[in-house]
Simulated scan of single mutants.
Amino acid sequence: MNTIVLQKPEKLILEDTSEPGDPPGGEALVQVHRVGVCGTDLHAYRGIQPFFQYPRILGHELGVEILAVGPNDQNLAPGDRCSVEPYLNCGKCIACRRGKGNCCTSLRVMGVHVDGGYRERIHVPVHKLHRSNDLGYDQLALVETLGIGAHAVARAQIESGEVVLVIGGGPIGLSVIQFAKAAGARVIVMDLNENRLAFCREAMGVDATLRPSSSESVVAQLEELADGDQPTVVLDATGNANSMQSAFYYPAHGGRLVFVGLFQGDVTFHDPDFHKRELTLLGSRNARPEDFRNIIGMIENGRIDTTPWITHRAPLKEVPERFPEWTRPESGVLKAMIEVS
């Protein structure tokens, strides 16, 4: 079976690995058709991904077809097309008991903590498969990325008419934009890359964009764009320490700041300023099962258009050769899609 293994930073190899075999009860054997390349994959390749060990089979944005289900599993059947919820939670800890399996105390994410989908066939727990026989495999592979944004917007409790600043116009920022717009917000996007800002204006239909030069000028520009006020919600999707620390200055008094990205380090802020504005600071990790179900429904009924997302493609066997290109900003990659079969 063709499998791509990340043996160490910047070393992806094609291996012939053994077939997974018949699935046990509670699991399904699936054929992987599409794998989206995530920022997590790129960080792991570069050696800067938290919670990561080598060697590892990457891949957690999956569009799959069920080949077989374990004994007594009747809700899914061979031939069903599914998106995979790649968060393997324990079901017993305090987070899981409260319906927050996305931040389980012993969470394992496919392609990060355990091997993922850069291969032809894998076993997946049946309760982590979300079926849609109306969507194509490209769309199903994008559901997980969209789920990150959907969950972040839900955490922020965005209301119609609010002014929302999204920092970072990469894939995670774009997923945030989709659901902030769906919630009825006026969306401003900030990024250093003018090509990304142009994409946000032309393909995503955001209300305004800006390029930062200093924290002072950013605040002034935000007030100009928001009719004299600062945004009531700021979502940082950069995973960049400087950006995340500067983000504390952007929300309005009484506003909310959501960190969607992460990095390996500490974030500090000026407490008197944070306190006087009574800011709410939120972390957002992964997504919940209901996010997957809702997103599939929104794509099916046309509320979410995935057409602009995929900018690069490659068959599985070419991934070791093509991957270095995808890590370079000048390549213009928004979302690379691996075609497994």
Rank of each mutant, 00 (worst) to 15 (best):
A208G: 06
L210H: 10
L210E: 06
R211N: 14
S213V: 11
S213R: 08
S213L: 03
S213T: 11
V218P: 12
V218A: 14
V219D: 08
A220N: 10
A220C: 06
Q221S: 12
L222V: 05
E223W: 05
E224W: 01
L225D: 04
A226Y: 02
A226F: 00
D227C: 02
D227N: 05
G228T: 00
Q230C: 12
Q230H: 11
Q230I: 01
P231C: 02
T232H: 07
V234W: 10
L235D: 08
L235F: 02
L235W: 02
D236S: 15
A237F: 05
T238I: 05
T238W: 07
M244C: 14
M244A: 15
M244K: 13
M244S: 15
Q245V: 06
Q245C: 11
Q245E: 15
Y249W: 07
Y250L: 07
Y250V: 05
G254A: 00
G255Y: 00
R256F: 01
L257H: 03
L262M: 09
F263N: 07
D266E: 12
T268W: 05
T268K: 12
H270S: 09
H270P: 03
P272R: 01
P272A: 00
P272S: 00
D273L: 09
F274E: 07
H275Q: 11
E278H: 12
G283D: 02
R285A: 06
A287S: 07
R288N: 12
D291G: 00
F292N: 10
F292W: 10
R293D: 10
I299F: 01
N301V: 05
G302I: 01
G302V: 07
R303E: 15
T307D: 14
I310C: 10
T311F: 08
